[in-house]
Structure formats: structure tokens, C-alpha cells
Design a protein around this nucleic acid. Structure first.
Lengths: 288, 288
DNA sequence: AACAGCGGTTCATTTTGTGAACCAATAACA
DNA sequence: TGTTATTGGTTCACAAAATGAACCGCTGTT
């Protein structure tokens, strides 16, 4: 029986921010209290503190809370100090153009890998990435490749906590997740088949900071039906080249083992620029 | 003598975020404690809470703190719920193109009006807006026009606190600031001459939400030397038209009194599209 | 008019935060 | 190289702050 984790007051207050997501813009006090499991009085105090800091704002008429303007100010500051969104967006556009599939970039955040930018495939059936989506470290391609290049003791700590199953296909056994991490480290790229969402297949590569530590991840996500062996190889090549470029642009340093794997994969000859045909070409037909 | 304002633990923790600005990306624990006036042990606890929430991140090697990735995630969410940066940027580009001067947009934040977007003038001498800059409500053009359309009791509260002088020209007398606010309400536009920075003249207009409350401000800032009467009128026209457009694009509602003032000003005929000449043309020379 | 739901307040109880002194590790210097 | 100074981080007796059940007043509904 897990003894109740004691959290500081600040932890409780900041946990309120997690309830604002894709489909929750304004949240009322009672609702916030219910979701957080706090008393209404405490919730009011916490929310008020966040309003005072500008992280939340309260509508004067209906009294509900929403994410505040100070968040934009701080984001602009961070983006000036460490440009990421500006650099990764053209890379994602290129990835999506080359693969024809939705791509996204993530940074490590308390609950996992948070999507910070994404470019959706132009195809009619495509994978949609929810704004603010946070992928689990153990169940997503991004998470696996991120852990593959993280310090082992850090990985150990992550795998010690109970691993949640996002779909029936999510791997939740620490040992087997560790095996997947090892495999990712050997290939430089990770896969996730239906692990985060049924019907979604994804591949991911790491991006490195100047200490050769994983800084971000790049991923391409497709409907499982389109994840053919050829498509996988082409996507892998696009991802490897994107990783090398972005790491360099960020002022990072690609570890030699990853660089080797990437260059080997990029050297593999394969019709890299195969324009995706709307209908499968039947190669059994005589061509002459 | 002001009795020491008792702050909650969360307030203290979140106050640490304010020390990250334009020229402070990584801040160490001791420095953070010194600036905040907190004990080192308390500062560590506060900073750790912010790291756990992802609002700060700590570099594993040099142990200093910086703004965290969760800020980007939250900013993206806010921007999806209430698009502002995406809509205001083209408006600012147009403003700067029409006036030839730096323009910026601000939202209300705990310490004043926070610059959320800006476009710099292409001229060699131009006003530079620091990233994350927060303008004082009482001393900036943005602040004056924001208060001019805010609830009077709210304004009263703002003017009760001691008003800081940013330059020798900053108006710090509550009565005289109130007079400036009244003037701004009568004209629909505000001015600040050297109030925030010496050598800077600025004009600002409000942008409204769907309850006719001020939502944001648009401002054009110039070196005082270029603030000629003609330039002021042209800038005012550009600002009024930008305000009407942006309010509409945001789904806001322009109050009738402001709409009247704006349309009256826009009806004034004046060579609106005078292209700025790089060198003054000597009209005394014969042209034929 | 009666009701239900909301945001917000009160105050005795209990849990939390605090900070001077301390330690270990790193960086700076001689 | 050895010495010093500064850093990030920890400890624990003490002091202050957070908590939440019961409460109020308001608003919109039936």
C-alpha cells in the first residue's frame, strides 16, 4: 500500500495547471477542486496564487479560470534564450513533406515528452497530435529513444514507477521496456506500434545538446496501415538526417555512436525520394 | 512604514520566475536566493518545486536554473484556446510598415503590460523592445490607455500603490496620472513622452474583448526626435485602424465611444502614405 | 417561491515552511 | 600542485502557514 506522497503547497498549486488541455480552456473553481481532489477553499487559495503570478487569469463575469498571459511572456523569454520552436518548425515541415506523414517534436516535461511543435500530414487520413499532448516515456517511440540516450540511473528511476498501459498494446513490464530501450540504443531509432494510440505507428530519433545529452525528440507518426517496410526505411532516413541537422543548428553535439548509425542508415541506397503514389503500383505488370 | 506583506509559499516560489529576463538565462541557487531575499534552503525548495512542475529546468552539470519546457507547452495551449500572437503579428508588421517605426503588442500581467509580440523598425536608429519587457501601468502609453478603458475602481486600486519613476519624466502623482487617463479616454489614444525611457516617445490604443473590456494594447514607439506633429497623426491613424481590425479578428467588440473616436480620426485627411525619404529633399532647388 | 449550484469566507486544528549552522564538491587561485 | 573560497545542498529545533467542515450570499432554474 503506497503511503500518501506528501507534496508541498507549491506542488499542489502548480498541479492545477495540468487540468488545462486541448479541450479545457475555462475551468471553474468547483470543477478544478473536484479534479485535483482538493478542498474548495484550498483550491481557491492555490488558484488565486497562480492568478497573482499571471499563470492563470480569471474571467470577471463568469469567474472561471484559464491559462494566463504571463505564460506567453515567459515562453517568449525561453524561446529567445534557447530557440527551439523557430528552428524545429522548418525541420518538421521538411520531414512531413519527405514522408507525407505527420511529424512532431517533443521536449522532456514532468509527465513525459511534451509535444512542442507539430506539422500534420496533408493526407486525408492522418494522425492528429493534440495540442499540449504529453507522451509516456515507456510507451512512446519518443520516450524510448529519449531513455536510450539518457543516464542509466535516470532510466532506472523512470522505470521504477508503475508504468501505465495507454492501449492494450502498451508495454508495461520494466524489463521488456528496458529491452526495447537497449534495442533503440543499438539502432539509433525507436518504434512504437499501437503503444500510445491504437492504429498509430511511430518512429523517433533523439536530438542532442552540447553535452551529448538528449535534448529533444523528433517523431513521424502514421496510421498503422501505411507503415510498410519501405516506408519505415524512408522515414528512418528522413528522421536521421533531420536529427543531425537540428542538433547542429541547436549548437548541440551528436554522439559518435549515433552519428555512425545515422550515416550508415543514410548510406543505404533506397529510392529515397519516392513520391508517394496515391494508388499502389502493381509491379507484376510488364513495364515494356 | 508598510507592514511586511505576508505572502503565501506559492507566491514566494513563483516570484523566482521574475528573475529570468532578457539578459539572465541561467541563474544559480545562491544568486537566485540573493535576488529574492530568501534563505538559501528555502530558495532551493521553491526552485525544486518549480523544476518538478517543469516551469524551471536545472542543468545537470553546472546546476543552474533556466525557464523550463512546460512553459512552452502551456503557451501553445493558451495560444490554441485564445489565439493572439498569430493574429497580432501581421497587424504589427503592417503598423511598422505604415509608420516606419517599431510597434509592439501587450497583455496585462501581474507587474504591468507585458510585451507579447513586437516588430522592429527597419531604420538604423530605432527603438528596441527587450524580450519579456513589462511596462508600468502609470508611466507608459499602453498602461494609460489600458486604464482609460478599465473599471474605475480597478484603476483606483492601481493608482493607490506607490508609483515608481522610471525616468525623470515619469508622472508619479496619482492625480495627474488620473488626468492623463481621462484625456486618453477622451481621445481614444494615449501618449508617453520619455516616461518609460528617455529619448522614447510612444502612442498606444486599446484592443477589446467580447465584453468591451480592454484585452490588449497596440503601441508604436519612436525616438523623440522623429515624433513630429504630422508623424503623430499618421501613427494615430495607423493605430486606430489596427485596433479596429484586431478587435474584430479576436472576436471582440469595440465600444461605441472608441469606435466614434477612431472613425473621426481616420476620416481626417492627411497624406497618410508619405514614404519616408532617406535624405531631406531640398525643395528650394529648381525641379525643372 | 423554493431549490440547487456556484464562488467565496471563517476559524480552530494540524501540518507545513523556515533558516542558522553545517557538509561535500567544485572552481579559482597561488 | 596544494590551498582557499564559493557553490549547491542538507539538517533539525522552531515558528508560521495551510487546511477543510461548516458557513454565507449570489445567480440562474424550475
Amino acid at each position: 500500500m503506497p503511503q500518501s506522497e506528501t507534496k508541498t503547497t507549491t506542488d499542489k498549486a502548480l498541479s492545477l495547471l495540468a487540468f488545462f488541455d486541448d479541450k479545457h480552456d475555462w475551468i471553474g473553481l468547483t470543477d478544478l477542486a473536484k479534479r485535483a481532489g482538493f478542498d474548495k477553499a484550498s483550491t481557491l487559495r492555490h488558484a488565486s496564487a497562480l492568478v497573482r503570478a499571471g499563470l492563470l487569469q480569471q474571467n470577471p463575469s463568469h469567474k472561471k479560470y484559464a491559462l494566463g498571459a504571463e505564460i506567453l511572456r515567459l515562453a517568449r523569454l525561453r524561446e529567445q534564450h534557447f530557440p527551439f520552436q523557430a528552428l524545429v518548425t522548418p525541420i518538421l515541415q521538411d520531414l512531413t513533406e519527405r514522408t507525407g506523414e505527420t511529424s512532431h517534436a517533443s521536449l522532456l516535461s514532468p509527465r513525459g515528452l511534451a509535444t512542442i511543435a507539430s506539422v500534420e500530414s496533408p493526407k486525408s487520413t492522418r494522425v492528429h497530435i493534440e495540442t499540449g499532448f504529453v507522451a509516456p516515456l515507456h510507451g512512446s517511440a519518443s520516450g524510448l529513444i529519449y531513455m536510450a540516450y539518457s543516464a542509466p540511473e535516470q532510466v532506472q528511476e523512470w522505470l521504477t514507477k508503475p508504468l501505465q498501459a495507454w492501449t492494450p498494446y502498451t508495454e508495461t513490464d520494466p524489463g521488456r521496456v528496458a529491452a526495447l530501450i537497449g534495442q533503440a540504443r543499438q539502432t539509433g531509432i525507436s518504434e512504437s506500434n499501437r503503444g500510445v494510440e491504437i492504429e498509430v505507428f511511430s518512429q523517433a530519433v533523439p536530438v542532442f545538446d552540447k553535452d551529448c545529452r538528449p535534448y529533444a525528440t523528433l517523431a513521424v507518426v502514421t496510421p498503422v496501415s501505411r507503415a510498410t517496410p519501405d516506408a519505415k526505411v524512408r522515414t528512418a532516413q528522413a528522421l536521421f538526417s533531420a536529427s543531425l541537422r537540428l542538433t547542429q543548428q541547436l549548437g548541440g553535439l551528436t554522439p559518435t555512436d549515433f552519428k555512425g548509425l545515422a550515416e550508415a542508415q543514410l548510406a543505404r541506397s533506397l529510392p529515397a525520394e519516392v513520391p508517394p503514389s496515391p494508388l499502389p503500383i502493381d509491379t507484376r505488370l510488364p513495364t515494356a
